[in-house]
Design a protein around this nucleic acid. Structure first.
Length: 429
DNA sequence: TCTGGGGTCCTAGGACCC
DNA sequence: TCTGGGGTCCTAGGACCC
């Protein structure tokens, strides 16, 4: 059986852990640039603030209802996530960290009562040790575990956990479960299914395989099997190396100046390169893209990307040179740009790397000593303490962040202290 | 005034091979 | 009038996830 553990309103809950006066109050957490609502407490959901809502469209409601607003604080959410995941791995035979706030656990066999009591214990420990409330659903496939978690979250009688195993109960639940809510069915697919006359998850399970294959290809077939309780999405415990690494940001305001955009691109490239080295990969190609503000149809629009290939490298200096070169080829003057991004692709691992006939081996690349030294300094003294000149010193394209919560320490002892104090008890450290 | 960021997987169609 | 069969690889774009 597979459990899905899902942190409730994760970012909002993180903010709450360190300030219990927020309990019971509506909270929203904003996207980068303070643009959209990307997380809401239950109270904020009840006020009708939708996921992804542009915050300026709700400013009156936010003010009238005294909604607490936070800019993203990913350092904090990342730390909380790691803590939650580490506790989860103590309880599971195997764990797949699916996202910052979700994990699948391999639970082995057991009757419903046993599985539910184990889930309750996990839930209690997470709450006690981190302050984050979670919902846990258990079933025989990942997709059904998602359904079970949904029930665990919505039905107060479940007290946060639900085991979905009995086939008759499963059919009854799926018969009321809208297709759009199924994991893997998005807007387009649900429109398609509706045209075919299907409404609930059970309708899909009961559709004959040959029709599914013809109309919905292997994607539909996999969904049918998963919903029927046959696991068809593999459990992936090892955190696999990424196949692409992307850094992209909207600018705080629109920029037309080439030098400033080049600095942003250099910064994104350096960030990507650091992620690349941390998974010990070498990139063989990159995409650089820029575009103007889609929402300003009154202004001239331009969007362009370019993909360039090169001998595999993880050298920041080399990658920045390539990225600036690529940018120069797509930049057009006379536009107000809103966003720039860099994506590294075509990765190779050192061991399997083909030597280039006319190019020095990346392993012997002299720059790497320098890059490694920069990594070490930045690790010790903080991000960007040492930087490449191309990155610039100013921060004119920095995103807006007006509602940032305190940068609670990334030191766990301090965090637990704050948490404990906030909840009026000793940290017991 | 103002509208996120970071990923994966799949498909269709083209180019190419013998 | 009429032009094979079987396959791989690559890419762009779509769809989906959180």
């Amino acid at each position: 059986m597979i459990a899905l553990v899902d942190c409730n309103n994760f970012y909002a809950s993180c903010e709450r852990v360190f300030d219990p006066s927020l309990n019971g109050k509506p909270i929203v957490v904003l996207s980068n640039n303070d643009g959209c609502v990307i997380a809401r407490s239950n109270e904020a959901k009840a006020l009708g603030i939708p996921m992804g809502a542009p915050v300026f469209q709700y400013s009156r409601l936010i003010e009238a209802e005294d909604v607490k607003v936070f800019s993203t604080n990913f350092a904090l959410y990342g730390d909380m996530s790691r803590r939650v995941m580490s506790i989860l791995s103590e309880y599971a035979k195997d764990i797949e960290i699916y996202s910052i706030d979700e994990a699948f656990l391999e639970m082995g066999r057991g009757d419903d009562a046993y599985l539910d009591s184990l889930a309750k214990e996990i839930r209690r420990q997470i709450e006690k040790q981190t302050g984050i409330p979670v919902s846990i659903g258990i079933a025989s496939s990942k997709t059904l575990a998602k359904v079970a978690t949904h029930i665990a979250k919505k039905d107060p009688d479940c007290k946060g956990t639900y085991v979905l195993s009995d086939p008759a109960v499963r059919d009854e639940i799926l018969g009321k479960y809208p297709l759009r809510e199924v994991w893997g069915i998005g807007r387009r697919l649900s429109e398609r299914l509706e045209e075919m006359g299907l409404r609930t998850a059970l309708d899909l399970v009961r559709l004959p395989e040959n029709i599914i294959l013809r109309e919905l290809t292997v994607i539909g077939l996999r969904l049918k099997k998963e919903l029927g309780g046959i696991p068809s999405v593999p459990f992936e415990s090892a955190n696999k190396a990424k196949k692409a690494i992307c850094t992209a940001r909207s600018f705080g305001s629109m920029i037309s100046d080439y030098e400033l955009i080049a600095q942003a691109v250099a910064n994104h490239t350096v960030t990507c390169a650091a992620k690349l080295r941390s998974q010990n990969s070498y990139a063989g190609s990159m995409m650089v893209f820029i575009h103007t503000n889609y929402f300003r149809q009154d202004l001239a629009q331009y969007k362009k990307n370019i993909v360039v290939s090169f001998p595999p490298t993880q050298d920041s200096l080399e990658l920045v040179r390539i990225a600036k070169d690529a940018l120069a080829r797509i930049y057009r003057s006379g536009y107000e740009y809103k966003k720039a991004g860099v994506i590294l692709m075509d990765f190779e691992k050192e061991a399997g790397m083909q030597e280039e006939l006319f190019h020095e081996s990346p392993v012997e690349n002299q720059n790497m000593q320098l890059v490694n030294a920069i990594d070490a300094l930045n690790k010790k003294y903080g991000k960007n303490t040492v930087r490449i000149a191309d990155q610039g010193l100013g921060n004119k394209h920095a995103p807006h962040q007006e509602h940032r919560s305190r940068s609670y320490s990334t030191n766990w002892d301090d965090m637990l202290e704050i948490h404990a104090r906030a909840h009026g008890r000793s940290s017991g450290k």
